[in-house]
Structure formats: structure tokens, C-alpha cells
């Protein structure tokens, strides 16, 4: 009895700790007052101002665009890596391949961002491209570090599922390509969707790498938000947080759904 009481208290405190800041943020987004911390009354004023703030709306559209594109590319390449590592035996310089596909997971973002920026500058000096940095360079950088996250999900799934299904299909006369498209890909589809969602949120949330590789006309949402809250508080950002938190939580639930689906 005593231990189950301790258990409930620990879990309650843990969840309280995780959710309290988020609830505070959402609560103050309904504050009428311009001074974020002084409560003046319930109001949707800052939501209204948020939707009329062109800078934030524009940044939001840019962010969604980059996130959707880079998640798609990262998913395609990540699935290829996951598949190669589990199913293809002959990979030239395999440990180098593993190094390339897993190091972005542990490399601090700052170092990754700096290396991408210096790479783009050097590339421009050599071949004259990209002449300026912007959405394209952020996209390339995001694909590069999202690949690893997708690859690890796909790799785990392919290791889990029974290879015999593929071999049976092969024995029944399916060729290699047909097995992949008719058997393997449909089976790991939930994981592919989960990988895409993960890559999408990572890209949408990234500030550091985007700050290094951005250029004129490519202020993503985190860059705009950071510039607003770096030195103080902003009631509009509170309103934005509430909306964004809600949207991201929905995406998170979808991720959970697809990632778990395979197991059942």
C-alpha cells in the first residue's frame, strides 16, 4: 500500500513538472495586458494581433514549406539507409557508411550549422553556387541531419520484422523490386510515416542550424520567435505558443499511433 502511494506521488509530481510550464504559457496567452506577467483580464487580443502580424505569418509559411520538403527528402534517403544497413550485405566501407548516417545524431547542432555555412561559402567560391544563402541552404542542411533520425527508426523496424515473408514472396516468383514495393514497403509504411513526422517537427523546431544557413528572405519561425524573446517577453509569442503547442501535440499523437501500429 505504502509503495503504491509513493508511486502515485512520484508520477503525479513528474507529470506536473513536465506540464506546468506549458500550462503557464497557455494561460498567459489569454492575458489582456501588454506586460505579459501582470494579469489584467481574459482576452483574445494577442491571438488577433498574431494573425495580423505579417512577419510571423510569412515565417510560419516558410517554415512549413522547408519542413515538409526536407522531411520528404530525409525520409526517402533515410529509408534507403535503413534498408541498406539491414538488408544489403555488400556496402563498400560499411563502417564509414554507419559513421556518416549516425554521427549527425550526436553532433552538437552548433558545429553542424557552422560546418554547413562554411561549406556553402566555400562551394560558392569554387563553383559560384549557391550565390546567396536562403531557403535552399536551410533545406539542404535540414535534410542532412534529419536523415539519421529516419534511418534509425526504419532500421529498428526492419530488424524487427520477419525476413521469411520476403523470402516466401521471392520463392513464389516475385522479383526483387516487386518484393520491395509489394511486401517490404507496405509493412514498414507506418514507420515511414512516423519517420516523416519526426523529421518534420525537427525541421520545424530547428533554430541553430537555420540561423547559420539562413539568408535574405528566409527567416523561419524559430528565428523570428527567438529574435522576439531573446531579450524579453512578447505576448504575441505566448499566443503563438499556445497554437503551436496544440498543433505539435497532435502531430506527436499521430507519430505515436504510426510508430506503435507495427507492433500490434
Amino acid at each position: 500500500m505504502k509503495s503504491s502511494l509513493i508511486k502515485s506521488i512520484v508520477i503525479f509530481l513528474g507529470l506536473f513538472y513536465l506540464y506546468f510550464p506549458i500550462l503557464v504559457l497557455i494561460f498567459y496567452s489569454f492575458n489582456e495586458n501588454k506586460r505579459v506577467m501582470v494579469w489584467k483580464g481574459f482576452s483574445l487580443r494577442w491571438y488577433n494581433e498574431l494573425f495580423n502580424n505579417e512577419q510571423i505569418i510569412e515565417a510560419f509559411i516558410i517554415s512549413i514549406k522547408i519542413a515538409a520538403l526536407s522531411a520528404t527528402f530525409a525520409t526517402i534517403l533515410g529509408v534507403m539507409i535503413g534498408y541498406s544497413l539491414v538488408r544489403i550485405r555488400k556496402i563498400p566501407f560499411k563502417s564509414f557508411y554507419i559513421f556518416l548516417s549516425s554521427t549527425p545524431l550526436v553532433l552538437p547542432e552548433l558545429i553542424l550549422g557552422l560546418s554547413m555555412l562554411l561549406f556553402f561559402i566555400s562551394l560558392n567560391n569554387v563553383i559560384g553556387f549557391p550565390s546567396s544563402r536562403g531557403q535552399l541552404t536551410i533545406f539542404i542542411s535540414h535534410v542532412t541531419f534529419c536523415i539519421a533520425f529516419v534511418a534509425i527508426i526504419i532500421q529498428a523496424r526492419l530488424t524487427d520484422f520477419n525476413k521469411n515473408i520476403e523470402e516466401a514472396a521471392m520463392d513464389l516468383g516475385y522479383n526483387y523490386t516487386k518484393v520491395l514495393y509489394k511486401i517490404t514497403l507496405p509493412i514498414i509504411l507506418p514507420s515511414i510515416i512516423a519517420g516523416w513526422l519526426l523529421a518534420f517537427t525537427i525541421s520545424l523546431d530547428d533554430l541553430v542550424v537555420a540561423s547559420f544557413t539562413t539568408g535574405p528572405g528566409a527567416n523561419t519561425l524559430p528565428i523570428v520567435v527567438f529574435s522576439k524573446v531573446r531579450l524579453g517577453l512578447s505576448p504575441e509569442v505566448n499566443a503563438l505558443s499556445a497554437i503551436l503547442m496544440f498543433a505539435l501535440i497532435i502531430i506527436g499523437l499521430f507519430y505515436f499511433y504510426f510508430n506503435k501500429k507495427f507492433k500490434h
Binding site: I11, L15, L18, V24, L25, V229, I249, G252
Partner: peptide, 25 residues
């Protein structure tokens, strides 16, 4: 419980830090 623990991790990193800025004012 597992979903509840992971959900905050899915929400924006920058905004979760910002939340502490509000709390610690």
C-alpha cells in the same frame, strides 16, 4: 503515461525554454 511523458518533447523546444523565462521573472 508514456505518451504523456513524450508529448512535451514534441512541442517546440524554443517555446518550452521561453516558458521558463515567464516562470522565473
Amino acid at each position: 503515461l508514456l505518451v504523456l511523458v513524450v508529448i512535451p518533447f514534441w512541442s517546440s523546444f524554443l517555446l518550452r525554454v521561453y516558458a521558463w523565462k515567464i516562470i522565473l521573472q
